[in-house]
Design a protein around this nucleic acid. Structure first.
Lengths: 340, 340
DNA sequence: TATATGCGGGACATAAATGGTCCCGATGCA
DNA sequence: TGCATCGGGACCATTTATGTCCCGCATATA
C-alpha cells in the first residue's frame, strides 16, 4: 500500500492535497450530521466557492445528498469514509509530520521525502530533487541566491531545471572556503546551479582559516569586495546541515580549534557556523561572505539535509530559529521529532 | 490494493485518467527508447501542447530526460514504470478479466496486455514482452524449452532478456516445418531465444509434409533422432495460436487437405495440430517433433496469441485443455469471454 | 561541406476552468 | 410573521490549459 501511494504521489503530486481535502469535507459532514455550506466553509477554512465545487463533485459521486436543511452523507459516503481511513492515515503520515515540524520550528514549509539518505543513494537524490523544487518555488525574478557547499547541495544543484522565474538569478557561494573537494565547494555548486537553472553566477575564491591580517587585505580587493556585497544582499540562502565534528575534520581545522568546538558543545554546522544543541552559535569559520546578521535578515533560508544520523544536527540548526524552509527525509524527520 | 484504487476511482476520477495518460506516455517512450515530441504526440493522439505539458511535468519529476535527439526515460522513470504496472493493470480492469478466464479454462495464469494486436504493432510488441516475462517466470535452471513458430513467437523471442534462471536452458523447435518464411520458423525463433536469453539451442531441419517413407528414414538419422529426443523431454512449451485456414495456406498444404480440414471443422492451429471449435484435435501436420502425448505431459505450456480476430481460435485451443498459461491482449480476451 | 530533417523550447492569442462574491427564493424555527 | 440559514443561480476577474507557429540547434545525409 505504501508503494502504491508513493508511486501515485510521484505521478500525481497534488493527489494528496485533493484527497485530503475531500476526505476532510466528508469527515466533517459526518461528524456534524447535517450542515450548511457556509458554516462548513467557515469551519474548514475554505472559501464558499471552493467548497461548493467540491460538494457538487461529491454529490455527483453519490457520496452526499443535499436537502433544504443542509448536506449530509449518503450511505455510500459513510462507507467510503470508513474504508479510506487507513489510506488517509498513511497518506497523511508524512504530511502530518511536516506540519508538526513546521509548527514547532515556526517554519514556512517543511518537505519530507520518503526514505533515509544514510541508507540509500536514491533517497539522497530524491532529497536533492525536493530541494531543487523548493528553491524553484521560492525563487522570483532577478534574485540573488547564496548557496553553501556539501554533497546534499550538490544533489540539489544537479536536479535544478531551467525555469522562467529563475532566469535572471545570480548564484553565489554563501561563504569562502576551499577546503573541501572541489565538486562539493560552494563555488562549484553555485556555478552548477546557475548553469542548470539558466542564471548567472559570481564566485568567491577565498580560503578557510583566514587570519585577521589576511582578512583585512582581502577585503580591500575590489573584486572580492564586490562579490561579498552581492552575497550579503542575497534574498535566498540554500544550505545543508552537517555534523560539527565531521565538518571540522573535513575542513582540516587544527587540533586546538577542534578542542574548542568540543568544549563549546558544537553539534551542528551550517553555512560556516557551528551550533550547539540549543541552536546557539558557538563558533564560526574564519572566512568572508554571509554573516550571521545577513542570514537573519534573508527573506528565504532553505535548509536541505537528511539521513537518520543528522537528525540531532538538524534539530540544533532549526532551534537557531532563522530558517524558513526545511527539506529533509523521513528518517531525519523521525529523529527530529524526538528532539522537540 | 483493489480497495485503495476503487476508493481513488470514486474520489478522484479525473486523476485516474491523468495517471493513465502519464503512464501511457512513459510506457510509449520506454518502448521506443528515444522519441521526439511530435512523433510521440501523433502516436498517442494527443496534441503537441498537451503532450508538452505532460512531458514538462514528467521531466520535473525526474522521470524522463530530454536530449537534443529526443526524450528518453531516466533510471527513475524506468523503475517507476515497472513498479506501476500492476496498478495500471488493475485500473484498466484487466485483472478481473484475467481471473475470469483463468478460472474458466482452469489455467495457472492468464496475462492480458492492453490493446489489440490486429490494430497496433505496439500492442503486438507488448504481447511479446509479456510472453517473454511469463517464460522467464516459469523457467528454471537447465530446462528444455520447445518453441513453435509464427510472428507472435518472434516477438516473444525479441523481448527475451538474459536471466540467471534461464542460463543453462536449451531451446528447441517444437516440431519440424520449413514452410514459413525463415524468420518466423521455429528454428530461427529457438536460436534467437537462446541468444537473447543466454542459453543453448538445438535445431531440427525437417520439412513439412513428410510422407511415411521419408519419416522412417529421417528417424534413423542419429542426429535428428537425438534432437527429437530432447524435444520430447521439454519441460516448457511456448507456442502461438493461429487461424486454421490461414495457417494451412501459409504452409501451402494441398487442396485436398484443406478440404479435409474444412470438413472436419478445423478452426485453430497450434504447434502443428488443428483444433475444432470444441478443442478436439482434428488434424495434425505430418512432421516430426513434439507429439500430442508429449504436450499433455509437459509441465508448462504457454500460449501467446492476441488480436480480436483470433479470439475464437484461442477459445478452441483453450478448450483443448492442456494449456497452463495464456498470454493474450485485451481485444482477444474480450472476444474470448464471449465464447464461454 | 552544404543541406534537410527533426529535435526541444520560446512565444502568444485564446479558450476554459477556477475562484470570489453577491443575490434569490425556499424552508424551518421562534 | 420575522429572522436566520439553506442550496443554487449568476457574474466577473483571474488563472490555467491549450492550439499554433516559429526558432536555433544538433544530427544525419548527400
Amino acid at each position: 500500500m505504501r508503494l502504491i501511494l508513493d508511486i501515485q504521489k510521484r505521478l500525481l503530486p497534488d493527489l494528496t492535497d485533493v484527497l485530503k481535502k475531500r476526505y476532510t469535507i466528508l469527515h466533517h459532514i459526518s461528524t456534524t450530521g447535517v450542515v450548511g455550506r457556509r458554516a462548513l466553509a467557515t469551519h474548514l477554512e475554505l472559501t464558499e466557492r471552493v467548497l461548493r465545487s467540491e460538494v457538487d463533485f461529491l454529490k455527483e459521486q453519490g457520496l452526499l445528498v443535499t436537502e433544504t436543511s443542509g448536506m449530509k452523507l449518503s450511505e455510500a459516503g459513510r462507507k467510503l469514509l470508513e474504508d479510506m481511513e487507513p489510506i488517509v492515515r498513511e497518506l497523511l503520515g508524512l504530511s502530518d509530520l511536516e506540519e508538526k515540524l513546521r509548527e514547532r520550528f515556526s517554519l514556512r514549509q517543511v518537505i519530507i521525502v520518503p526514505g533515509d539518505c544514510d541508507q540509500s543513494e536514491l533517497a539522497k537524490k530524491e532529497l536533492g530533487r525536493a530541494g531543487a523544487t523548493a528553491l524553484r518555488k521560492y525563487a522570483t525574478k532577478d534574485d540573488v541566491v547564496a548557496v553553501a557547499g556539501g554533497s546534499t547541495l550538490a544533489e540539489v544543484a544537479d536536479h535544478l531545471t531551467p525555469s522562467v522565474q529563475m532566469k535572471g538569478n545570480v548564484f553565489v557561494p554563501a561563504r569562502g572556503g576551499l577546503g573541501e573537494s572541489v565538486e562539493l565547494q560552494a563555488n562549484s555548486i553555485a556555478s552548477t546551479m546557475a548553469k542548470k537553472a539558466g542564471g548567472q553566477y559570481r564566485l568567491l575564491h577565498v580560503p578557510d582559516h583566514l587570519g585577521e591580517e589576511a582578512y583585512v587585505s582581502l577585503m580591500q580587493d575590489p573584486n572580492i569586495l564586490e562579490v561579498v556585497e552581492v552575497i550579503r544582499g542575497a534574498r535566498i540562502v540554500v544550505h545543508g546541515i552537517g555534523d560539527a565534528m565531521v565538518m571540522a575534520r573535513r575542513r582540516k581545522v587544527d587540533r586546538l580549534t577542534i578542542d574548542e568546538l568540543l568544549g563549546e558543545g558544537a553539534l551542528a554546522e551550517a553555512f560556516g557556523y557551528y551550533f550547539d544543541r540549543d541552536g546557539k552559535v558557538v563558533h564560526k569559520m574564519p572566512t568572508v561572505g554571509l554573516r550571521l546578521e545577513d542570514i537573519q535578515s534573508t527573506e528565504v533560508v532553505i535548509a536541505v539535509a537528511g539521513g537518520k544520523s543528522k537528525g540531532e544536527a538538524i534539530a540544533a540548526v532549526m532551534k537557531f530559529g532563522h530558517e524558513d524552509v526545511l527539506v529533509t527525509d523521513e528518517a531525519a524527520a523521525a529523529e527530529l521529532i524526538r528532539f522537540i
